[in-house]
């Protein structure tokens, strides 16, 4: 029982990061029908932002807004420089653009910053634990969970209740119909990229606090997990992305904890088999998206 609760919190903590990234990917997929493989760029840039400001002697508290700001700014720049030019192109073109962007940015970091891993100090409290009864929980997991809960609630409010959110959902459902209503395409897409950048930035803060390092392809793993989570949840569904993120985090943690030692190395493989099974029975993911009727 104790073990189960610990694993649950651990899984939800890990799932929080996936959920935030998956949500950002789902937001962008919604308005542009783009599975953005360049999302990892935001995490990589956040990593270097963290390295440079911490190296300059900033505290982690001061570094947090810098990391999030770097992520939002990078997201907006990728929209302006790359994705605006292929807007309305077919899905394959946008997909290739996003791949290309990821590789170009990684190459730029290799060329101008260096291929080496850059290490930085992790906050001292990352490894702290608290004991509740007989259960020992990581402060970091609890913090991640708490901040994620607040972020998700804020995003839900933004998307459900504000004019920006309603316009965003309308544009995601039928872009041309939204434009006919006066929704400005540039503004709603920029808003989506800013929101996705914000979510990636918040996720990056936790990923970087845990990792204490960055490299030119640092964002790749987290991005792939986020895309997987979005697919598991049902691409295009915002709540699905969150559910997919937590599901992936929990499944990974339970597998790592429960698998015999000589099979733990196969965790990722088993996760992919499970995902394949899911898609056989629910091809649309956990939350299937109803698409606007087009007669």
């Amino acid at each position: 029982m104790t073990e189960l609760v610990q694993q649950l919190v651990d899984g939800l903590g890990r799932g929080s990061e996936y959920a935030l990234i998956a949500l950002g990917i789902a937001v962008m997929f919604g308005v542009m029908h783009l599975v953005n493989f360049a999302y990892g760029v935001l995490i990589t840039v956040s990593g270097y932002a963290a390295f440079y400001v911490l190296d300059a002697g900033w505290s982690w508290w001061a570094a947090i807004p810098a990391i999030i700001g770097a992520s939002v700014a990078t997201s907006l720049v990728t929209e302006l420089v790359a994705f605006r030019r292929v807007r309305g192109a077919d899905d394959a073109t946008m997909l290739l653009t996003s791949f290309g962007l990821f590789f170009v940015v990684s190459a730029l970091f290799v060329m101008y910053v260096g291929p080496n891993v850059k290490n930085f100090e992790r906050p001292s409290w990352v490894t702290n634990t608290v004991t509740v009864g007989s259960i020992r929980l990581e402060v970091f997991d609890l913090t991640t969970l708490g901040v994620t809960a607040v972020t998700l609630a804020g995003t839900a409010f933004l998307v459900r209740r504000t004019m920006f959110g309603i316009s965003l959902r309308a544009a995601a459902a039928d872009f041309d119909a939204a434009r006919l209503m006066g929704v400005r395409s540039n503004r709603v897409i920029q808003g989506a990229f800013a929101l996705a950048g914000l979510l990636a930035g918040i996720a990056s803060v936790f990923i970087l606090m845990r990792a204490g390092r960055t490299s030119p392809t640092f964002g790749e793993t987290a991005m792939l997990k986020g895309i997987l989570a979005a697919l598991i949840g049902g691409l295009g569904s915002l709540s699905g992305a969150v559910i997919g993120g937590f599901t992936l985090g929990l499944v990974e943690v339970f597998l790592i904890a429960r698998l015999p030692d000589d099979l733990v190395g196969l965790t990722n493989g088993i996760v992919f088999v499970l995902i394949a099974l899911l898609f056989i029975f629910r091809p649309g993911g956990i939350v299937s998206v109803r698409h606007a009727e087009r007669v």
Binding site: I166, R169, A170, A173, D174, D176, A177, A178, L180, R290, A292, E293, R294, V295
Partner: peptide, 12 residues
């Protein structure tokens, strides 16, 4: 313009 096939936002 009220477009062909109405194109209301079904999920809203």
């Amino acid at each position: 313009l009220v477009p062909e096939h109405r194109r209301i936002f079904v999920d809203l």
